[in-house]
Nucleic acid binder design. Structure first.
Lengths: 354, 354
DNA sequence: CGAAACACCGTAAACGTTTACAGATCCTTG
DNA sequence: CAAGGATCTGTAAACGTTTACGGTGTTTCG
């Protein structure tokens, strides 16, 4: 951990100027003899370029930030998994910000862009407040937002389409002959909660099914709360034949409670989750789930950012990633053989770290 | 995205020297009048300190790297989730390196420490080769290794104890009256595979059970392979009454195959997984699993690194994190009510990203 | 043989900070 | 009021690079 060699050390050892050393290291035209001497000296000293000094001069850090609420959330994780290799391939390091669902922290992170320790950032805001928009407008480095941002906000934007997602699920249940389709939602003051609630209503309308308040239960986006909500629902109405759950965890809670109540899934009650996380494939019966394309949104966001870092001044772009219904056993006793496999095998690799 | 203000801009605006500006910004003793002027100017200009320049001078980047094979792996993810808040609280940013199971990439990452873009690093090597040891010896910044490293390697080291882990599981199965306990392992040329195989043998010996080669099946650490291995096993021996699986994915595969074969879990065959990932709680029946303390190992590693960054020159430390058996339904029909809950609820937060 | 063209190379400035040092200003005190 | 000290401030160097510019030595050509 002794003081590492610098360009100056090499220059002395090789008997040339630091400018020559730099030129050699950067592959600029130089006499063979000099190249040889510099290379030899660098080799002997075990020289490695100092990234910080380099960044100061070049105004490029080759780092990109990814900011979201919580790495533990599988949706964010799916994004991260796609973002990482794209950035790595382009020679960028990834700085991770987990804001822990504190809105003020998100603003802080945006503010910290001014410190210029990254060349750009991908952010998944929890909700988009006035403060967000203001910071995004004044951001000192390019930002790509995953989530919806108002027209005219000067950032690239990757959106999911949970409306269509819910529609896919409800249509699927309807096609299976289900008519008493309940919604088990999370809090409606969150962006996804509100969107899913509205989409559910719309989907029913398009199918000509009545909207029955009795069939809507609000809990939270966790397993235990989901279970509780479903229990309350079953207590109230007895003829439910399908559950549209606003996320996979809620759906798992639903499975717990249905099993305890002696209801068969999917024969008595069909269950659909949302986000298509790894848990959906692991549960039993395996869970039909609406994928909102987290992985793809991550990949697209990374690509948009790289584009922007290269070119810089084109118009902001908006990309919407289509949802996909992954059918598994919780809605059809015999799920189509090839579909629904998603990435059960590969998803969690190795597993051994002794 | 225009050229941001620097300390010089402020100095001009406030009519003082850059040294004064710097002093004010760092809270060094300064006349009130000057403080006021500088603060005002900084405010107006929306000044933010340039982290790169700062790092160059101070030789501190306030960044720490975390390097592992794959963010998708729940074990690494559990570490990450603990590491992140510890570092954040101490004012460090987290740089993520996912080496994708390529050993050469791990060496690269170690080498890149010389670029000094981070103050230190936490690494989970896939396997520890001669090259690793050499790089670790010559590392230009402190490294904490999660995994086992030979005595005398000059780095802090956090270890799991999969030997004891396997013992806990086998003892548990034995206590439940199981006598034909099979091992479904991953490749034995990996560190965890080898350790778990040896531990299984030892555990049997201590219980006075015979080691029966018939009962050992080697597959890979994935769900499908695990299932295949179990199918092969069942084909060969018919009286197996317990499966010790080398990781949770293998165990999930086992559940699939057992169900298909009409065997009841746990009545006919008890199943134990390893790593206690989120999947263990999600599956049905929920999976008894040996936790190797990934989360805690992450937390400890982060703390060791922070210690070292502050103090620097103490002796390398070795910490071993004890395993824990989390009992769920796949071994006992009625799992103890409070235990085995681990973190089913919180683990995967929010879930909504529309 | 002298001048022009060329290929290399070294000097020095710049990136945006922090900080040692010395100079300037103010206050205190005899 | 002068001197001494205390307090504050500005100049300049440093961190490790990259790069514009001009200088040196060699080659080429009239």
């Amino acid at each position: 951990m002794a003081q590492g060699p610098t360009i100056t050390t090499i220059a002395e050892r090789a008997g040339v100027s630091i400018a020559s050393v730099s030129r050699v290291l950067n592959g600029l035209p130089t006499r063979q003899e000099t190249v040889r001497k510099v290379m030899a000296a660098a080799e002997e000293l075990g020289y490695v370029r100092n990234a910080v000094a380099r960044s100061l001069k070049s105004r490029r850090t080759h780092q990109v930030a990814f900011a979201m609420a919580d790495v533990g959330n599988p949706a964010y994780l799916a994004m991260l998994r796609e973002i990482q290799p794209v950035l790595k391939a382009a020679g960028y390091r990834l700085v991770l910000h987990s804001t822990g669902a504190v809105v003020a922290d998100e603003i802080d992170v945006l503010h910290s862009l001014g410190e210029r320790y990254v060349d750009g950032m991908i952010m998944v805001p929890l909700r988009v407040t006035e403060a967000h928009l203001q910071m995004l407008g004044a951001a000192r480095a390019p930002v790509v937002v995953i989530g919806s941002v108002p027209e005219g906000t000067p950032v690239d934007n990757v959106r999911a389409d949970s409306r269509t997602g819910v529609r896919l699920a409800v249509d699927h249940l309807h096609a299976l002959g289900r008519r008493r389709i309940a919604l088990v939602n999370g809090p409606t003051d969150t962006v996804p909660g509100a969107a899913r609630g509205a989409a559910y209503r719309e989907a029913l309308a398009e199918l000509g099914l009545p909207y029955d308040e009795e069939l809507v239960e609000i809990g939270d986006f966790y397993r235990a709360e989901g279970g509780r909500a479903v229990a309350a629902l079953l207590n109230r109405v007895s003829d439910v034949d399908a559950l549209m759950c606003a996320n996979d965890l809620i759906a798992l809670g639903a499975l717990d409670v249905l099993r305890a109540a002696g209801k068969r899934v999917p024969e008595d009650v069909a269950v659909v989750g949302m986000d298509d996380t790894d848990l959906a494939a692991a549960s039993w019966p395996s869970l039909t789930s609406v994928s909102l394309g987290s992985a793809e949104r991550g990949r697209v966001a990374a690509e948009l950012l790289l584009d922007r870092l290269q070119d810089g001044e084109h118009e902001p772009r908006v990309v919407t990633v289509p949802p996909r219904l992954v059918v598994r056993a919780s809605t059809t006793p015999e799920p189509p053989a090839t579909r629904g496999r998603s990435r059960d095998g590969r998803s969690t690799e190795g597993g051994g770290t002794s």
